[in-house]
Design a protein around this nucleic acid. Structure first.
Lengths: 231, 231
DNA sequence: GACAGAATGCTAAAAAGTTAGCAATTGAAT
DNA sequence: ATTCAATTGCTAACTTTTTAGCATTCTGTC
């Protein structure tokens, strides 16, 4: 759960050299979404590549009973929709803007043209996709193995990291529960424990992190696996 | 959980045209492993591509307490080790032969040479990797959402399918528990329920499937999501 | 400053899963 | 036929999670 739910380490756009990045964005049309707006739904067939320009996107699968399970959240520079291009799959998840979000959309035909003309692109896509695959496998392992308080701590640490705010994160407990795929009561209990341990402090729609280093250390001390050497 | 734990739909080797498949196998050296033998361990750094020629391989991460969590099982034609080639990662999982297994090994240098000389290869790898990524996301969703009896039924159905035996599977309950990442007691309860429902019959080291269609139907009736259109 | 909506904190009962055993059954080897 | 190890079935206490609900606290708006 290196970066819980924000899979992929370096986002694709960070891997691309300047020239390719420009060529991709030139081929794209930008669409803006308000917070909570749906970008696409599970089952949509229209192929194309999407790149998060600003904001972030939550991917989830709706349950029969109205429940939602979040499978990932992608931020700026990350792309999605590869499966519609390379594996001829329809969209497998609902994509919803978490905040005001801008998406660069590239149609399949435009993408194919660039992809064919730029042989280096393939290897970069492979790097990004492979990294994402292994991040997901890692995350899956955490879900099955770690007790909820530890998962919760990791999520909070990751959110603080990705928001570049080390003092705390703006987030209510319902959203946390939703993201972790558990009930609000369970999250409440887990947060209570973390507060008892002194690594966070609960607020109203907000979680304070008194000492970022302490939190990271607390997590590291309880993680069953030594992290692999960073690459 | 289309194919629980046997991710990837069409294995890579099935996607390759004859000529490329031959070129790959020519570049490889075949290594044989006895059932239970370790192929590689988490953290091993030596890069290279591995292809399952015969048998099957279980991928798992060992826990601090000696527990193991299985993240996938790959069969003939599937490849692994892409992460060591494309993302410069060490091996993230222990790989263990489930039965007598033959692996085709290609060194990084040989692979790079083929990869550079055969431009079509990239798109095929992308297809295989993308498919695997989305299979894993799907599986993760099942783990978080489905009650254990349903997960168990899916696993048994997938095992029967992949072993091409519709009458039953050879498998003891401890192994099932190990694969599902839960305790033997829980698997026992889940199997008991499935037996009560009449979709399986328990034996000694064996699970009988009286009616394969009935089992598949039972699963479909209880699955919260309509499957996406097959591609 | 009062108010309304949002969010949290809490409770209690029920469901599901875990650990730690031990007894009974099975199948294979002697 | 007997023995033995593997496997299953079962129990009991414990932990975790869920559901459902309600009281309390907080915050932004009027």
């Amino acid at each position: 759960m290196a970066d819980l739910l924000d899979f992929g380490g370096r986002p694709l756009m960070a891997l691309l050299p300047e020239r390719l990045r420009l060529r991709m964005t030139d081929a794209a049309s930008t669409i803006r979404y308000a917070s909570g707006e749906t970008i696409h739904s599970r089952g949509d067939a229209k192929p194309g590549l999407s790149i998060v320009r600003e904001g972030s996107v939550r991917f989830a699968i709706p349950g029969a009973d109205g429940s939602y399970i979040t499978s990932s959240i992608l931020g700026p520079g990350q792309c999605f929709g590869e499966a519609t291009l390379f594996a001829q799959l329809p969209r497998t998840h609902d994509a919803i803007a978490v905040e005001a979000t801008a998406i660069d959309q590239i149609t399949k035909s435009r993408f194919d043209r660039i992809f064919d003309e730029e042989p280096e692109l393939a290897r970069l896509f492979l790097e990004a996709t492979t990294q994402r695959l292994y991040s997901v496998l890692d995350f899956m392992d955490d879900i099955r193995r770690l007790p909820l308080p530890l998962q919760t701590a990791k999520l909070i640490a990751a959110m603080a990291r990705s928001a570049k705010q080390s003092r705390g994160v703006e987030c209510n407990q319902s959203d946390l529960a939703f993201t972790l795929g558990v009930s609000r009561v369970s999250v409440g209990k887990a947060l209570g424990r973390l507060q008892d341990e002194g690594v966070i402090q609960l607020g109203y729609g907000r979680i304070e992190i008194p000492d970022r280093i302490l939190l990271e250390q607390w997590i590291a001390d309880r993680s069953p696996l030594a992290p692999l050497a960073a690459s």
